[in-house]
Write a protein that binds this DNA or RNA. Structure first.
Lengths: 134, 134
DNA sequence: TTTTATCTTAGAGTAATTAAAACTTATCAT
DNA sequence: ATGATAAGTTTTAATTACTCTAAGATAAAA
């Protein structure tokens, strides 16, 4: 239901717009999307949406702590802000795979050093070894 | 002395060019540089160098495992490939600060899952709390 | 010292993102 | 419900950070 998302946005003091709802619904499906992918996907239902709006919405959602972003392969990727994990960029398939890991020590170490940590991004570049590379 | 660098490049099967030497000497000073910064710095001594050459040299050096790169704040940063560490992007000063940390578990976990890991990038976005933000 | 594969250069080209300006809308207080 | 207003959206243009190409130059092997 949309109600949850609506309340989530309201709770963070964000205006609830159809565009933001659509971004949230897409990201809620799970996985990783870049700006262009989100734009292309949302255009299917709402052809008038613009790429700027997508980026604006993502920025607002990220600032509110609902969405998380990281950079890999020269692109910014967005995902729902859930539990911290490793994002593995597969050099064979160019897919991003979530790998769970305990990253709490990292954040703790930084806090101990006096940093006020907003986001920790762990990106690994690797071959998944499941593809035949001739 | 340049001899060390020359031998390092030769050992990796790379041609030794004045441009690559210059990139290596700059990165050897320590710290993090982006393509434009390296270009601007090298131009001081060799005005004919081009930005493409900088990126080409960095790519060759990275492929050889001599140089490491990571992305932060929409920019690719280059550093000498030394011990794995956390790169903290300070949201106040926009500087990148190295923070040592044990990242071996991360790489091990990925290896156990069958990944052939080429590079692990840990980037934290944080305030250093040493700057007065009015 | 000639050969040749590789590198460098200059400049054009591209992809991803950001900015500006004008218009539209979600929310709140009537 | 209504109207004000702050915030969000759209379109278009601009910017940033690379990336590519083609032609000339050069490091290193023979």
């Amino acid at each position: 239901m949309d109600t949850e998302i609506v309340e989530m946005l309201r709770g963070k003091g964000l205006k609830v717009t159809p565009q933001r709802l659509a971004v949230m619904k897409l990201l809620s499906r799970g996985g990783h999307f870049n700006g262009e992918q989100i734009y292309e996907e949302l255009k299917k239902n709402e052809p008038s949406i613009s790429l700027s709006t997508v980026y604006n919405a993502l920025e607002a959602l990220e600032n509110a702590g609902i969405v998380n972003s990281f950079e890999a392969n020269g692109i910014t990727w967005y995902e729902m802000a859930t539990k911290a994990h490793i994002n593995v960029f597969c050099l064979d398939t160019k897919e991003i795979i979530d790998v769970s890991a305990n990253l709490q020590d990292i954040e703790n170490q930084l806090m101990e050093k006096g940093f006020d940590v907003k986001n920790v991004s762990v990106v690994a570049y690797a071959s998944c070894n499941k593809v035949s590379n001739k």
